[in-house]
Design a protein around this nucleic acid. Structure first.
Lengths: 122, 122
DNA sequence: TTCACCAACATAGTTAACCTAGTTGGCTTG
DNA sequence: CAAGCCAACTAGGTTAACTATGTTGGTGAA
């Protein structure tokens, strides 16, 4: 499930879960699948899933309860003040993604043009 | 160095580094000690140091440059801390715009390269 | 029935190892 | 001397394994 873009797997999973939470697919109060299930679902290792969940936990989107599960935080429980931090983190992730993709495009463009016109950009 | 309080080590290290950055002990532009040095300094494993640095990286306090080091971000460069939702919305719009434009470029590049030379770098 | 114990499963933290990739500096070779 | 190669060091990503701790449900004994 984790695609082979420049974006690391744990960020892809975090993005996907974040989208599901914001999109309402994972309602507040409901538990995420267990780490083992997520690992199986995304075809990733447990470590990667734990890293992804750790990010969301750090962002305050979810709350992990040892022995029970990881639950989507209530919207009432996370006021706008805490939400901005998460949005900033999300935007930062998006910018990072764009950066990587743009770098690849630039590289492709550079190689294809140097072969044709000797143009070198650095 | 990591005390045996309830707070996990990787958070303690992240807190300490964050305090050093905010306190000016680690000035913007200066590099953090290498992960190996930090691991030695805090008497922790490389993994926990990498997790701590990953947190600061996610927070935007530092910028990791592969092969060089992890540098404290310029204060001017990261005004995102503690400002309004308006800026968040503005950034979101900008990211959306960039996303669409980049997708178009990627598509054009993909079609043109496959048509001309079948060159693929992945 | 109720209590105690235990097995299974959950998150959480930690460690070690391996791999990739970028940077740097020194050394060798032409 | 200059170019290129290579070793050492860097961050970053991934995996596997282990420990700790909390929850839950079942089982068996009192």
């Amino acid at each position: 499930m984790v695609k082979n873009t420049g974006r690391p797997g744990y960020l892809q999973i975090a993005d996907d879960l974040r989208a599901q939470i914001n999109g309402g697919s994972l309602a507040p109060g409901t538990p995420l699948p267990s780490t083992a299930q997520l690992a199986d679902q995304y075809d990733a290792s447990l470590s990667v899933v734990k890293m992804a969940v750790g990010i969301l936990r750090n962002e305050g989107l979810v709350i992990g309860q040892q022995g029970k599960g990881v639950f989507v935080r209530d919207a009432d429980d996370s006021p706008a003040a805490g939400d901005t931090a998460g949005e900033v983190a999300e935007l930062r992730a998006a910018v990072q993604d764009l950066s990587v993709r743009l770098a690849k495009v630039e590289e492709q463009l550079a190689t294809s043009t140097t072969r044709r016109s000797g143009h070198s950009s650095q």
